[in-house]
C-alpha cells in the first residue's frame, strides 16, 4: 500500500501542491486526473524519489521511504516519451532492472520472453528501440517497468501521442495487463475517458489537497 501524507512541493517560488495526501491500496489502479501543468508529474517524481518534497512523508507498506534513494525504493515508473535507452536493444532495455537486481542471464532471458509475449511483441528481442513505432515503444517501456515486478508502478501520461484508434486499443490492453499481473498502479492523465478505461478508481488531482479557506488560497496564488 502506498501512502502519500501531506506532501508540499514548491518549485522556483511557485507552489505546485500543498499538503497533498493519497492512498493506493494493493492491487488498486488509481487514475489521477488533472489538467496538464498542474503538478501531477511532479507528484509522481516525488513518490519515485527523483525529486525531494519540501514537506510531507511517503510510506510504502507502512515503511517511511521519504529519504530512501530512488534505486532502493522498488517503485517502477513509466515516463512520458517512454525514455527507452537508445543505445540498448529491446531485450536489453527490458532486462535492465533485472540486471540491477543481479538476475543471471538465463532467468533474465526467460523473463524477457515472457514479457514480450505478454505485450504481443514476441521475437522483438534484438530490435533497436529507435526503430520501434510509437505504440511499440510504449509497450516496451511498460514491459521494462513491469519486468522486476516492482511494488507499485507509476505511469505518467502513458498513452499520449498516439492516434485515437491505437490509443483506445492500448488503453484496454494496458488495463488488462495491469490486472493480469496484479500490479498496483498510479496513473496520471488529463483524459477523463482514458482514466475511466484504465483505472479501478479515479481521483481528481485537485481533491488531494485540503480545501483551503478562500482568503488563504488567494494568498498562495
Amino acid at each position: 500500500m502506498l501512502e502519500v501524507r501531506e506532501l508540499t512541493m514548491r518549485f522556483e517560488q511557485r507552489v505546485l501542491f500543498t499538503q497533498a495526501s493519497l492512498t493506493v491500496a494493493d492491487g488498486e489502479i488509481v487514475a489521477l486526473l488533472g489538467p496538464s501543468g498542474s503538478g501531477k508529474s511532479t507528484l509522481l517524481k516525488v513518490i519515485a524519489g527523483l525529486l525531494d518534497p519540501d514537506e510531507g512523508r511517503i510510506l510504502l507498506g507502512n515503511v517511511d521511504i521519504t529519504t530512501v534513494p530512488t534505486h532502493r525504493r522498488d517503485i517502477g515508473m513509466v515516463f512520458q516519451n517512454e525514455q527507452l535507452f537508445p543505445h540498448r536493444t529491446v531485450a536489453q532495455n527490458i532486462e535492465f532492472g533485472l540486471r540491477m537486481r543481479r538476475w543471471n542471464s538465463q532467468r533474465r532471458a526467460e523473463r524477457v520472453t515472457e514479457l514480450l509475449e505478454l505485450i504481443g511483441m514476441s521475437g522483438f528481442e534484438r530490435r533497436r528501440v529507435t526503430d520501434l513505432s510509437g505504440g511499440e515503444a510504449k509497450r516496451v517501456a511498460l514491459a521494462r517497468t513491469l519486468a522486476p515486478s516492482p511494488r507499485i508502478v507509476l505511469l505518467d501520461e502513458p498513452l499520449t501521442g498516439l492516434d485515437r484508434e491505437l490509443h483506445d486499443q492500448l488503453a484496454r490492453d494496458l488495463h488488462q495487463l495491469l490486472r493480469t499481473t496484479a500490479t498496483t498502479a498510479l496513473v496520471v492523465t488529463h483524459d477523463r475517458d482514458e482514466a475511466a478505461v484504465l483505472a479501478t478508481r479515479v481521483v481528481a488531482f485537485a481533491d488531494l489537497t485540503p480545501r483551503l479557506p478562500l482568503a488563504e488560497a488567494g494568498d498562495l496564488r
Binding site: 517524481k45 527523483l50 534513494p69 534505486h71 517502477g76 512520458q80 535492465f96 540491477m100 517497468t145
Partner: peptide, 18 residues
C-alpha cells in the same frame, strides 16, 4: 540529454554511479 532518461534508470534500480 533528457533528465527522465537517467530517472528511468534510477527507478529500475540503478545507483547514481551505475
Amino acid at each position: 540529454l533528457p533528465t527522465d532518461l537517467t530517472g528511468a534508470a534510477r527507478t529500475l534500480g540503478a545507483s547514481p554511479l551505475r
